[in-house]
Simulated assay, not measured.
Amino acid sequence: MSKRVFRTDRPRSTRPVWQGVAAMAVLLVAAGCSTTRVSGPAPVEDRGGNVTRPPAVVVMPGAENAGKPGYYTVKAGDTLFRIALDSGQNWRDVQAWNNLTNPNALEVGQVLRVQPPSAVASTPATPATATGPSTSPVASSGVVPRPLDSAPPAASTSPTTPPPTPAPASAGADEVTFIWPATGSVVTPFDEANNKGVSIAGKIGDPVLAAADGRVVYAGAGLRGYGNLIILKHNNTYLTAYAHNQALLVREDQAVRQGQKIAEMGSSDTDRVKLHFEVRRLGKPVDPIAYLPRK
Score class of each variant (00 low, 15 high):
D46K: 10
R47F: 14
R47A: 15
G49T: 02
N50Y: 11
N50E: 11
N50V: 09
N50S: 08
V51M: 08
V51Y: 08
R53Q: 11
P54L: 15
A56R: 12
V57N: 11
V57R: 15
V58Q: 12
V59G: 06
V59L: 15
M60S: 06
M60P: 08
P61L: 08
P61E: 04
P61Y: 07
P61R: 04
G62N: 11
A63G: 10
N65T: 07
A66S: 09
A66T: 07
A66V: 07
G67V: 08
K68S: 13
P69M: 10
P69H: 06
P69V: 09
P69W: 11
Y71M: 03
Y72N: 02
T73C: 03
K75Y: 04
K75P: 00
K75S: 11
K75M: 04
A76Q: 12
A76G: 05
G77W: 01
G77M: 01
I83G: 03
A84E: 00
D86Q: 07
S87G: 07
S87D: 05
Q89P: 02
Q89C: 13
Q89A: 13
R92L: 15
D93R: 04
V94K: 03
V94H: 00
A96C: 03
W97I: 00
N98Y: 02
L100F: 03
L100V: 09
N102Q: 10
P103C: 09
P103T: 02
N104F: 13
A105K: 12
L106G: 06
L106M: 11
E107V: 05
E107A: 14
Q110P: 06
Q110S: 03
L112Y: 00
L112A: 00
R113M: 10
V114N: 01
V114M: 01
Q115W: 08
Q115G: 04
P116L: 08
P116V: 09
P117M: 06
A119L: 14
A119W: 04
A119F: 12
A121I: 03
A121C: 05
A121E: 12
S122R: 15
P124N: 10
A125F: 03
T126Y: 11
P127H: 04
A128L: 10
A128E: 10
A128Y: 08
T129K: 10
G132V: 04
G132I: 01
S134A: 15
S134E: 12
T135I: 05
S136N: 02
P137L: 02
P137G: 10
P137W: 04
V138H: 00
A139L: 12
S141K: 09
S141E: 14
S141R: 14
S141F: 14
G142Q: 04
V143R: 08
V143A: 15
V143E: 14
V144G: 02
R146N: 05
P147S: 15
P147F: 11
L148R: 04
D149T: 13
D149E: 14
P152K: 05
P153V: 00
A154P: 01
A155N: 08
A155E: 05
S156L: 00
